[in-house]
Amino acid sequence: MARSNALTAALAGFGAGTLATLANFGRFWLFSLHALSFVPVELVTVRGWRRLLPQCFHIGACSVPVIMLTGMFIGMVLIVQGYEQFDAAGLRDRLGAIVNISIAAELGPVLAGVMLAGRVGGALAAELGTMNVTEQLLALRSMGADPVRHLVVPRFLACLFLTPLLTAYADLLGALGAFGIFVGVYGGPPEPYWAFTREIVQLWDLGTGLIKALFFGAAIGLVSCYKGFHCRPGAEGVGQACTQSFVVSFILILMLDFFLNVVLNGLYSVWYGYRSLI
């Protein structure tokens, strides 16, 4: 009897947890659709741009140094990791191309996205969470203003537009950092480094990286704003919202990266066929 009661309680707990997760998922999509419904209007009105531009500064311009550093160190560490192996295999001249394609198509967007999820996502969740617990969101509603339109849409658009731009910065600094270590530390020849890069790295690789960054930016913007809007009361609630915002954004970035790679690689195979990097 006791065993069957425990089983029932466990099943009930599992059921309640599943329902709560599904409800949260549904609320997130309703929230996202509500925000997306304002995007066209905000992009064609002066007031929309007035709200958007300060966010572009906070989310974009203020993230440039950290993104550039991230990109540069990725490039540098890839050369350090790969030089001896490639040199031993007689493929030293091709190392630059391999590193640059890794940065452009994969590491640049993913690591820039993760950095932004931490720096921007956390800040957005904290800012909106604090506004939530100090009744500022209610105050907006009480004045007839839509908090989603005023607060979420500009932040979402800034994340959407600027994540690819910041990824391009990360790619550029990654390539330069790698080149600096390749030539400056290991004494590799500069001409073949760029020649093979030109030959192997295609616009497609750069484009797929930037397309992925666009999705990562959208995910960071929507998840962070949702977590801020739905945080629990008090400092603990705001703290949890920040943590959850980063964790969910991070997982989403990895999942999106996987599915986008599957789709984009499939499209490449259909349109261009197989290509060898070596």
Binding site: T130, M131, T134, Q136, A139, R141, M143, G144
Partner: peptide, 23 residues
């Protein structure tokens, strides 16, 4: 609904306990 409430809310002001000023 929220949109239909806007004209009503334009006639009512609310002074919140925590002031709710926009930082």
């Amino acid at each position: 609904g929220e949109r239909a409430l806007v004209p009503i809310r334009q006639q009512i002001s609310f002074v919140f306990q925590l002031n709710a000023l926009f930082d």
